[in-house]
């Protein structure tokens, strides 16, 4: 039975990564047609990508959005997790469950709703509106990561610090933050990747400052630009994978 499971897992693993692998392989293929047999190896799609001004601007938009989103969501999640793991108060269970509510809504619905808010209040679409949407869907993830970090940390460390004469803010800086650091880094990496790769909200909220996924979407319609998209996709996939692996390793690391 165990052998059957392992065999199944091997097949699953192969099928899981096959499409992604093909995507990467074709980004090095010297042909605009995505078809076998492969032609010769080339880096020209990558060169074309680097020289594409629209792409570079989309890339910088994404970078700004993901950076601001990850820092904001992680800070917000860190404070929230401190509240629910370090204190007892009425409505705590309800509050910690409610923070996950944005995940219970299809992204399309969230997207059109936010779009409606901005239109009705006259707030113009910009990088800022995308950040707002991304912070909303990233906060639950940041909060989740920070809660699992804090759950493994005895509140006695902070109590001991206060007891030794350090007021709350200095205790936060000298004890809470250093101890929560693996969680903070994990959350930063995770939320950065989610924001950087997110498409639907960015599609509705970015208007004339497209993010990288929105730019790629716009290029997919043109068959001759597909290889360029693939080159870009390869870079995104490789970088995302590294960030996520580091994030997950940090998140689940057991301390002593």
């Amino acid at each position: 039975m165990r052998t059957v499971r392992k065999l199944y897992a091997a097949v699953y693993f192969f099928v899981l990564y096959l499409p992604i692998l093909l995507l990467i392989v074709f980004s090095f293929n010297d042909s605009v047609y995505i078809a076998f047999p492969l032609k010769s190896f080339t880096l020209k799609w990558y060169e074309a990508a680097i020289q594409n001004a629209q792409l570079l601007s989309a890339f910088s938009n994404s970078l700004i959005i993901a950076t601001v989103t990850s820092v904001t969501a992680t800070s917000v999640g860190l404070l929230g997790a401190m509240a629910t793991t370090r204190y007892h108060f009425r409505g705590k269970t309800l509050a910690s469950g409610a923070l996950f509510a944005p995940l219970a809504l299809p992204t399309v619905v969230t997207g059109v709703a936010l779009l409606s808010i901005f239109m009705m209040t006259g707030i113009g679409l910009s990088i800022g509106t995308v950040i707002l949407g991304h912070v909303m869907i990233c906060t639950p993830f940041a909060y989740g990561v920070m809660v699992s970090r804090f759950d493994g940390l005895s509140p006695d460390y902070e109590r001991a610090s206060m007891d030794l004469g350090e007021p709350p803010i200095r205790t936060f800086l000298r004890v809470t933050l250093p101890l929560a650091m693996p969680g903070v880094v994990s959350s930063l990496l995770l939320t950065f990747t989610i924001s950087f790769d997110e498409f639907i909200l960015a599609f509705f909220l970015s208007s004339n400052s497209p993010t990288l996924p929105v730019f790629m979407w716009s290029q997919m319609r043109f068959p001759d630009r597909l290889p360029l998209v693939l080159a870009l996709a390869t870079v995104v996939i490789v970088v995302s994978s590294v960030l996520i692996i580091v994030s997950q390793l940090l998140r689940r690391r057991r301390d002593r």
């Binding site: 005895s154 006695d156 460390y157 109590r159 001991a160 007891d163 030794l164 101890l179």
Partner: peptide, 13 residues
């Protein structure tokens, strides 16, 4: 007043 905790609470970092 200072406390010695049951868990010791020795800062691991």
């Amino acid at each position: 007043a200072n406390m010695v905790f049951q868990s010791y609470a020795i800062f691991p970092h």
